[in-house]
Design a protein around this nucleic acid. Structure first.
Lengths: 158, 158
DNA sequence: TAATACCCGACTAAATTACTTGGTTTTATA
DNA sequence: TATAAAACCAAGTAATTTAGTCGGGTATTA
């Protein structure tokens, strides 16, 4: 388990999807505009998220992405795993090339530690993140802007 | 809070110090040999660990590093913080340049999340790591090697 | 006085990250 | 049926980070 900015991008994008994807699919262009992540980079992330069965896609105009499952069933650890494609962590993969046996010692420990972090992040769902108070207030701000959002989007495209 | 290989190196090295540093200070050359981390890289890490008041140094022959505190008082989060020098995480540091207010939304969330991870790692001490069963068995292996360790070290130097 | 080992800064190769470019399909809709 | 919106795809690239090297120091002690 690594914890990089790429993972943050992915969680951010999935959270955007969780907030805005109630009825219709959400286009990457929308997420790109809101979260200021480059479109092509999002495409690469979502290719991985799709392979990880976390989102489904709808092609053609009006298309976009949907969460593959309900928000309480998608967990932060899954998102990070999907985009980070597991590092094997140890250079002594399996057995054999550990020089003393001591090398493996801390390797196992670190592995154990990252498993604990993984377990921790496996308990936090998108639903929980969305339900936090600070999100709620920000979302109400956003829906206040809702009426003029389309206009703004068009204006921003030019 | 990031979770990179550099953090792993630091935790590994500190754990090595916790295991081998009971009586005399431990030289970086020893840690380098046992954990297979380059000496100069270790020097850079320990410079940061020293600045972070996690270790103290003893110069001259027979010198090395000691833990600055007892093992139950040194926590994994501190080690990672010391070597990773906090990323400011958000590009909208403070207020102002967030375009919609929505940008900050997920930024705050991610920050919140990494604080939770930080809190989690703040509860795991070096003592706890050392006391785990898999470490214990590995340590007994190591002390079985203890009688010939000096010979081996000299042989390895050549 | 010489060996040990910390200390320090600059430089470098390799890897990773974030992004760009330039396409191709698919599909709603005008 | 033409068009445009969108997902999809692959290759390349600039910037950053990581891990390591190199070449000097300086303090301590056998």
């Amino acid at each position: 388990m690594k914890l990089t900015t790429r993972g943050r991008y992915a969680v951010t994008a999935m959270l955007d999807l969780a907030i805005h994807g109630d009825d219709r699919p959400v286009s990457l262009a929308d997420i790109s505009g809101r979260q200021e992540i480059s479109l092509s980079y999002l495409e690469q992330l979502f290719a991985k998220l799709r392979r990880g069965a976390l989102v489904t896609s709808v092609r053609g105009p009006g298309g976009g992405y949907r969460l593959a499952r309900a928000r309480p069933q998608i967990f932060v650890a899954e998102i990070i795993d999907a985009v980070d494609e597991s590092v094997d962590a140890t250079n002594c993969s399996g057995k054999g090339n550990c020089h003393h046996g001591e090398v493996c010692l801390t390797h196992h420990l670190w592995q154990d530690l990252s498993e604990q972090i993984h377990g921790f992040l496996s308990q936090i769902s998108l639903a929980e993140l969305v339900d936090r108070r600070d999100v709620q207030s920000a979302v109400s701000q956003q829906s206040a802007r809702g009426s003029r959002s389309l206009q703004n989007l068009i204006a921003q495209q030019l």
